[in-house]
Each structure stands twice: as C-alpha cells, then as structure tokens.
Amino acid sequence: MNEFIVQDDQELYQEALIPPENFNMVCQHVYRSSFPKKKHFCFLKKLQLKSVLTLILEDYPEQNMKFLEEEGIKFLQFGIAGNKEPFVQIPDDKISAALAAILDKRNHPMLVHCNKGKHRTGCLIGCLRKVQNWSHTSIFDEYRRFSHPKSRSMDQQFIELYDSNQVWPLVDRRYLPRWPTLGKPS
C-alpha cells in the first residue's frame, strides 16, 4: 500500500514540474510561455498568478477557463493575428493596451502567452523591452532566442518601429511595478 502512495506522490510532484513550452521569467512577477495545457496547471498554481494575458484570437478553451475561475485568476485577452506578410499586421493599439495591463502591478503575478510563445508574445515582450529602455540588439537577441528557428523580420520591424510613448496615457502610474529599467516619460 505504501508503494501506491509513494507512486501517487511522485506523479503529483512530476506533474507540478511541467512548465509550458517557452516558459521564462520576463521580469519580476511577469512570465511568458506557450499556450498552457491541463498538464501545466499544477505548475501554474505554484506561480500564484493573479492574471493570464493571452494574445490568441480564438475562444479560450473551457478547461482553461475553469482552471482560471477555480484559482481566482483574471483573464485578459488581447487577440491579435500573427505578423505575417503581406496583409496581416499587429495593431499598435492592442499592443499598447496589453502593455498597459502588464505595467499594472495589480495584475501581477502574470502569465503572457500566445500559441507557441514565440512570435506574438515575442512582439509584445519586445515592445515591453523598449519601454524598459533596452537596446535594439538586446531586444532582438531575446526575440530570436524564443522564436528560433523561425524568426520573422516583420516582427522585428514592428518592434523597432513601435512608439513606446503611446502606452503611457493608458497607464495608471500609481500601479507601475518597481522595475529598475522601466523608463518613465517626463
């Protein structure tokens, strides 16, 4: 009988250690990943998330919504299409609104994701890095690390041309996180 208890404990322990693909800490209390599946829920519980920000266009699956409701996690959806040539472009206003949600510490800890945690998430995090005053070289290095092996030049162009000043009118400065690299306009 003890053998079964040990096996059950090991299965729970192993399940708790399965992060979604492309999981990483972006900065204090903000994480990124691919689309979380049921096998990732125990891992996500450990993060004590207050919100999940998704960039997918589709309806969120019922089992994911149930998980969020059970855990008291706020659901934020800023659906955007991938930045693919020739006619699909990421809308600046949705990126700015999503950035404003990330820059509100009342939403932290937060998980940001799209389907694979590569391109759309990479664009959003790249724009966050601009707000944090990162160099383009560092931003693109990070983008390519997560989008490998299929980086999109359109994504990198979007990040480069994004005007990070457009996010500040959407932000309540009382709730800005205390990130040392966060650039605040005068």
Rank of each mutant, 00 (worst) to 15 (best):
E3L: 05
Q48M: 08
R173I: 07
H108T: 07
P36T: 07
E62T: 12
A16K: 10
S164R: 05
L53Q: 07
K74A: 14
P180F: 08
A16I: 01
P20V: 06
Q28A: 13
I18H: 05
E11M: 10
P91W: 04
L57T: 15
L44E: 01
F78L: 05
H148P: 01
L47M: 04
P19G: 00
H29Y: 09
S186L: 13
H40G: 03
L128H: 05
E85V: 14
G79W: 11
A101H: 10
T181S: 11
F146W: 10
K74E: 14
D104F: 03
H148A: 14
L49P: 06
L76D: 06
I80E: 04
S138C: 01
R145I: 01
Y162C: 04
V112S: 02
L68S: 11
D104L: 06
L49I: 06
S34Y: 02
A100V: 08
G117T: 01
R32H: 07
P61E: 12
P91H: 08
N22I: 11
L111Y: 04
K105M: 10
I80F: 06
R174G: 07
E70Y: 06
Q48N: 14
R106W: 02
I125P: 01
V171Y: 04
W179C: 15
R32K: 14
K66E: 12
C127W: 02
C114T: 11
N64T: 11
C114K: 08
M25V: 15
G72P: 09
W168T: 04
G82N: 15
E11C: 08
S186Y: 07
L44C: 05
A97C: 09
K94V: 15
A97K: 14
